[in-house]
Write a protein that binds this DNA or RNA. Structure first.
Length: 878
RNA sequence: GGGUGCAUAGCUCAGUUGGGAGAGCGCCUGCCUUACAAGCAGGAUGUCAGGGGUUCAAGUCCCUUUGCACCCACCA
């Protein structure tokens, strides 16, 4: 017997047992079909947030169903070393002890990071387990594991040998806060209000001026030209002339370049190749020198030459320098005016610091060629997205791809395997430090100080976790994986990079389906964030409601790709549903025990009643529907169908219908059907609510081991009881109509009523003769007549398809009211018929609509006209 | 500047090959019916943002207007 309420507190123990029994374990088994998924590895700095909860619920639902369907399922778990995020955390911790990373040195620092990882890195893994994630936890990997690091080395060396990795001086994005380069994908653009300054520089000869507009006057230390559009008549005479940069007293040329827009500002543009992407291009085209006036920490360096005779600029921050340059220009009359404009600023996605474009010597991956198979993969349908729009985003990014800056000035990460000969400066890229320089025979090498972008290693995740570069059976069996579940913001960082890495190194795509799900927002539709303090801890919700409830809430009532507004109110309906499941199960268990079956049930269906056949037929539909919806990753619709079936059909109707049979004689067919349907429904629900379904399943099937290793619910061809189902639907209509009348007349269910049913066919009689009318409609008994002759005029008529039911409620009847009710019904039926007749009379419809649909319309017409006839007949009687 | 998505009941949202507008919550009425009051039964509520088009048929496809959200971007 079950307790009165489900206790979610038992979930932890249950999970431990699943682990012990090895249900999540994946092994190569060529007799079975493989199904594999790689987890988007959470950062070791992470703690479980609602986004993770959603992401992992979706994956868990899919893999749990696949496992029950008989696939050999690998859900590959693991964590990411999260280079910047982790390094920042450890630096902060160091600061608490009054230390800096420079003070303790590289080796000691890395030791501390590893220690930090041991201490905190497993937090999120424990939390994922609490959610019920059925990963093969024995295969947990970490992006800095030995094996995965070997994969990184291999990839770097191979790409270098192929000429796809190079080192070069290019304009990169520099974060002055994190003191490292970042990739384009890590720069986010924020709208900003800036000031556009109109300045002028004096011509070297002739004493004239040229004016231009800029939002960054503080970069003028790096100006190496003034550019105008070649078509611009205003400046034609000036091109080739020199102007004086007041700061440092340099002279720079006026050049013509098509990049300059005549209509913006004054039509002239200062060119600072070292500090702006466009200017870098212009400078490159014109062979201009570039002057880097910035230190790594965002202060100016010695190239920031002041106006002769003034204090140095060196050491000033950019903000301070802007203020001072503008002031000094103004004092000399070189500031014409300033105006506010809207533009956008690139900031580092991790820390929010404004990104400075700088020229630096860095490592890059040449992307153009690598991107091609990834583009083709989407175009040919080898790799799909659950929504076309995400495919477009993916394509757009790949079509406009630029080389990927992969070196980072961090210590935590995979160190770049480039070695520089200390005597001849020759570069060797190799899996390990070379013994001897191939050029000068020197034996002294220094390894590159930089590490790789975190995403460099996660790009390899689908195959590095399976043992690559070794040739493993796992790779043969589980690669490519089947589906990747993630959020849209990760498409560029990760999805794209896994795809081209997969094609390049494995010769195959890394996965077939990419499922992009929405974000979890707070109840007002805002992002959950620490600064707003509006985050909701999944673990708190799990503690209060149980993991099953949270999981259901995250997928119910939302299309998979739309954002979810989280509110505790949304958890309650799911808790209520699970409570319903629990209590229905409790009731059934009571029946089975009282039925003296002691858990032993008949193996086969025998002597099924019409309602048994109906629910089995309806179960078939539910199984087909739920399975299909999960297959196409529409989990919300799958849950909707489970609830519709279990609650509104099985509990509200079927269980009520069979109560008389249970109470009277413990009807075996009813018991069998109840158990069969409940077991099947539990299986359908299991991927979403693994804990409660396991608990109930084991109580219900004491001889079984776990619901997890049962076969997925299957559609049974023998349950093709469509005719019975139709009759039961009419019975339901009738019962609803009777309840309706009772409610209107305020007749409680406890006041029993004799019902007279006027119907022709025996099947209808069989359906309407069931004794559940007592429970469901408060009927004392149902008697049948061929026609309505002799039925008291004071009986209330209720018309459904093929049947008129009379409720003799003499003392309550109000003839006028009943007449009005029937007239209303007549009107309704007539309008339905008019609609159908309109359709059927439409030549186009009859000619072009699918025959199936036309047949349905004809059927409806027959039904409604039959009902109308009955209503009219009754009206005539009255 | 370029692109994408959203607008459906009071609220939050489903509605995926175009074929009789749905759920949850809330609201109203009545029920302590021996599985469940976290429940049961009944009820009210929609110019599916506005306009145009395609089609026998449009919440669903196309165009357009308005409002909102997001993404990309080398707008000095």
């Amino acid at each position: 017997m079950l307790e009165k309420n489900y206790d979610a507190g038992l979930e932890v123990e249950m999970f431990e047992e699943w682990l012990e029994k090895g249900y999540f374990r994946a092994k190569v088994d060529w007799a079975k079909k493989a199904f594999s998924v790689v987890i988007p590895p959470p950062n070791i700095t992470g703690v479980l947030h609602m986004g993770h909860a959603l992401n992992n619920t979706v994956q868990d639902v899919i893999v749990r169903m696949k496992r029950m369907q008989g696939f050999e399922v690998l859900w590959q778990p693991g964590t990411d070393h999260a280079a910047i995020a982790t390094e920042v955390k450890v630096i902060e911790k160091l600061a608490e002890d009054g230390l800096t990373k420079a003070e303790i040195g590289r080796e000691a620092f890395l030791k501390r990071v590893w220690k930090w990882k041991e201490e905190y890195g497993g937090t999120i893994v424990r939390q994922l387990k609490r959610l019920g994630s059925s990963c093969d936890w024995e295969r947990e990997r970490f992006t800095m594991d030995e094996g995965l690091s070997e994969a990184v080395l291999e990839v770097f060396v191979r790409l270098y040998d192929e000429g796809k990795i190079y080192r070069g001086e290019k304009l990169i994005n520099w974060c002055t806060h994190c003191r490292t380069t970042i990739s384009d994908a890590e720069v986010v653009h924020k709208d900003a209000e800036s000031v556009l300054y109109y300045l002028k520089y004096e011509l070297v000869e002739g004493g004239g001026f040229i004016s231009f507009a800029t939002t960054r006057p503080e970069t003028m230390f790096g100006d190496t030209a003034i550019a105008v559009n070649p078509e611009d008549e205003r400046y034609k005479g000036l091109v080739g002339k020199m102007v004086k940069v007041p700061f440092g007293d340099r002279a720079i040329p006026i050049i013509a370049d098509e990049h300059v827009e005549k209509d913006f500002g004054t039509g002239a543009l200062k060119i600072t190749p070292a500090h702006a992407p466009n200017d870098f291009e212009v400078g490159w085209r014109h062979g201009l020198p570039s002057i880097n006036a910035l230190n790594d920490d965002g202060t100016l360096n010695a190239f920031a030459t002041p106006i002769p005779g003034t204090e140095p600029y060196e050491g000033l921050t950019l903000a301070a320098a802007r203020e001072r340059t503008v002031r000094e220009m103004d004092e000399r009359g070189w500031l014409i005016k300033s105006e506010k404009i809207q533009n956008s600023l690139g900031v580092h996605d991790r820390c929010g610091t404004v990104v400075e474009p700088l020229i630096k010597l860095q490592w890059f991956v040449r992307m153009k060629e690598l991107a091609e198979p990834a583009i083709e993969a989407y175009k040919s349908g080898e790799v799909t997205f659950n929504r076309e729009q995400y495919g477009k985003v993916y394509l757009h990014w790949l079509n406009n791809i630029k080389d990927w800056c992969i070196s980072r000035q961090l210590w935590w990460g995979h160190r770049i395997p480039a070695y520089y000969c200390q005597s001849c400066r020759h570069t060797v890229v190799a899996r390990e430090m070379p013994d001897i320089c191939p050029k000068c025979r020197s034996e002294r090498f220094l390894q590159d100080e930089d590490t790789l972008d975190t995403w460099f290693s996660s790009a390899l995740w689908p195959f590095s976790t399976l043992g690559w570069p070794a040739k493993t059976e796992e790779l043969d069996y589980f690669y490519p994986t089947n589906v990747l579940v993630t959020a849209d913001e990760i498409i560029f960082f990760w999805v794209v990079r896994m795809v081209f890495s997969g094609y390049h190194f494995m010769g195959k795509k890394p996965f077939r389906d990419v499922i992009i799900h929405g974000k979890v927002l707070d109840e007002h539709g805002r992002k959950m964030s620490k600064s707003l303090g509006n985050g909701v801890e999944p673990l708190d919700m799990i503690a209060k409601y149980g993991a099953d409830t949270l999981r259901l809430m995250l997928v119910f009532g939302n299309a998979i790709d739309s954002d979810i507004r989280f509110s505790e109110e949304r958890l309650e309906p799911m808790r209520n549903f699970l409570n319903k499941v629990w209590n229905a199960s409790r009731f059934l268990l009571m029946q089975f025990e009282e039925g003296g079956m002691g858990g032993k049930m008949p193996e086969q269906a025998e002597n099924l009643a019409i309602e048994d056949k109906w629910i089995l037929w309806r179960l078939n539909r539910a199984i087909a529907e739920v399975t299909e919806k999960i297959e196409v990753y529409e989990l919300g619709l799958a849950v909707q169908e489970i609830i519709d079936f279990f609650w509104y059909e099985f509990c509200d109707w079927y269980v009520e219908m069979v109560k008389p049979r249970l109470y009277k004689n413990k009807d075996t067919a009813a018991l069998w059907t109840l158990k069969y349907v409940l077991n099947s429904a539990l299986k359908l629900l299991h991927p979403f609510a693994p804990f409660i379904t396991e608990t109930i399943f084991l109580k219900l099937n004491t001889e079984r081991e776990s619901i997890m290793i049962e076969n997925w619910a299957a559609v049974v061809a023998e349950f093709d009881f469509e005719r019975e189902a139709k009759d039961i639907e009419v019975v339901k209509e009738a019962i609803k109509a009777i309840r309706n009348v009772r409610a209107e007349k305020n007749v409680p269910l406890s006041k029993k009523v004799k019902i007279i049913a006027v119907c022709e066919t025996e099947e209808k009689q069989a359906a309407f003769g069931r004794d559940f009318f007592d429970f469901l409609a408060g009927a004392e008994d149902v008697s049948f007549r061929q026609n309505s002759e002799g039925v008291a005029d004071t009986a209330i008529p209720v018309v459904v398809q093929g049947v008129t039911l009379f409720l003799p409620l003499e003392d309550l009847v109000d003839l006028a009211a009943e007449k009005a009710r029937l007239l209303k019904e007549q009107k309704r039926l007539e309008s339905e018929l008019a609609r159908i007749d309109g359709k059927l009379a439409n030549e186009g419809f009859v000619k072009k609509a699918p025959p199936q649909l036309i047949a349905e319309e004809r059927e409806k017409r027959e039904k409604f006209s039959g009902m109308l006839e009955l209503v009219l007949g009754q009206l005539g009687r009255m």
